[in-house]
């Protein structure tokens, strides 16, 4: 695997290809006879690719479906419809043992470093368990591998017998990263990996993730609500709103020339640590709140808050998600 990456082969073929991905959570009423009364349309039709070795940033506000997207790619939530290709394999068709084998190649880093580690297992147990269940190493060999992994993520291998609660938040996140690396995966979904950490610790984890990517040729889907962090770590960035990607472009293009009004408002809302710049900035303040994903607005889902909405935006069909040139995708009637 590594040799292939080093030769630069397979750069052209995407590692992950998502087609028409939808994840609906049914809402039911009744105790004995459960009636289906509606769906939370958490993810409502996504198409995108992640290239081998790149970091795709996925940003959006809470409830926009970005975490659900990450979980649906890993098949932790089974998609309602659509396909997720990992290389040539359609993950949505896999079940049981076949899916379990694929899990070696794709992993996840979680937001909450406290809740994502089993409090009743030692660090050695947590990081070593995947090695054991996938038959990669056991006994003394497993122990050595675990210590190696701890060293790789910057933890003292001596702490192998300690329990998670003995560590600080940043250290726990490193344990979570070591666990994700244990199976030597190609692809890692990072679900807000730093948003629960203190500001001064965040940079340590970002740098670690960057180093690991370089060393192991990892591909990341980096999910976050913090646009500054996403800009820093991503090669390309996708912006989600109410279950859909509204804009996707490479990082410089997206931040310097945002095309979608939502992206523009989102970027203008992020504070910059410089009083002079802040004094000159024009903020686009969006009115109101995000509508319910159970019953998204007709037409463009952003029209209820969009400062530039036109009549066509309030009518079906939704604006198409199309290339506006140079791989800059956007779904907006103003552009197309």
């Amino acid at each position: 695997m590594n040799a292939q990456r080093a030769n630069g082969n397979g750069r052209e073929q995407p590692l992950i290809r998502v087609e028409g991905l939808r994840v609906y959570f049914p809402i039911t009423r009744g105790i004995i006879f459960q009636r289906h009364v509606g769906d939370v349309k958490a993810v409502d039709g996504l198409d995108f690719e992640i290239k081998r070795g790149e970091t795709l940033g996925l940003v959006g506000e809470s409830g926009c479906g970005k975490s659900t997207t990450g979980r649906a790619i890993l098949q932790l939530y089974r998609p309602t419809s659509g396909h997720v290709y990992f290389g040539d394999v359609d993950l949505t068709t896999l079940k049981g043992e076949a899916l379990r084998r694929m899990r070696r190649r794709m992993q996840m880093i979680f937001q909450d470093p406290y809740a994502s580690l089993n409090p009743r297992m030692t660090v050695g147990g947590i990081v070593g368990e995947p090695l054991e269940v996938h038959g990669i190493a056991k006994g003394k060999e497993k122990r050595e591998r675990v210590q190696e992994l701890l060293r790789v993520v910057g933890l003292n291998p001596y702490f192998i017998n300690r329990y998670p609660h003995e560590f600080s938040g940043g250290q726990r996140q490193r344990i979570g990263i070591a666990r994700a690396l244990a199976l030597n995966p190609d692809f890692i979904v990072c679900d807000e990996p730093i948003s629960a950490l203190d500001v001064s610790i965040q940079a340590q984890i970002i740098n670690l993730l960057e180093d690991l990517q370089e060393q192991f040729g990892l591909t990341y889907l980096f999910i976050a609500h913090d646009l500054s962090v996403v800009r820093h770590i991503s090669d390309r960035v996708a912006v989600m709103y109410l279950g859909k990607i509204v804009e996707l472009a490479n990082r410089v293009e997206l931040y310097e020339h945002p095309l979608h009004p939502y992206t523009q408002a989102l970027l203008s809302a992020v504070p910059i640590p410089d009083p002079e710049i802040e004094a000159q900035r024009q903020r686009i303040i969006l009115e109101g709140d995000v509508p319910s994903p159970t019953n998204p607005p007709r037409g463009c889902r952003f029209h209820t808050r969009c400062p530039l909405a036109m009549d066509v935006c309030r009518e079906d069909p939704e604006p198409e998600f199309k290339d506006a040139g140079g791989g800059h995708y956007v779904a907006c009637h103003l552009v197309h």
Partner: peptide, 22 residues
């Protein structure tokens, strides 16, 4: 609903092991 159970699932840990070990 705890994330560490989700993590175990993501690691491909078999159901019986999740039940008794986690």
């Amino acid at each position: 609903e705890e994330p560490f159970i989700e993590a175990a699932e993501a690691l491909g840990i078999p159901a019986h092991r999740i039940l008794f070990r986690h």
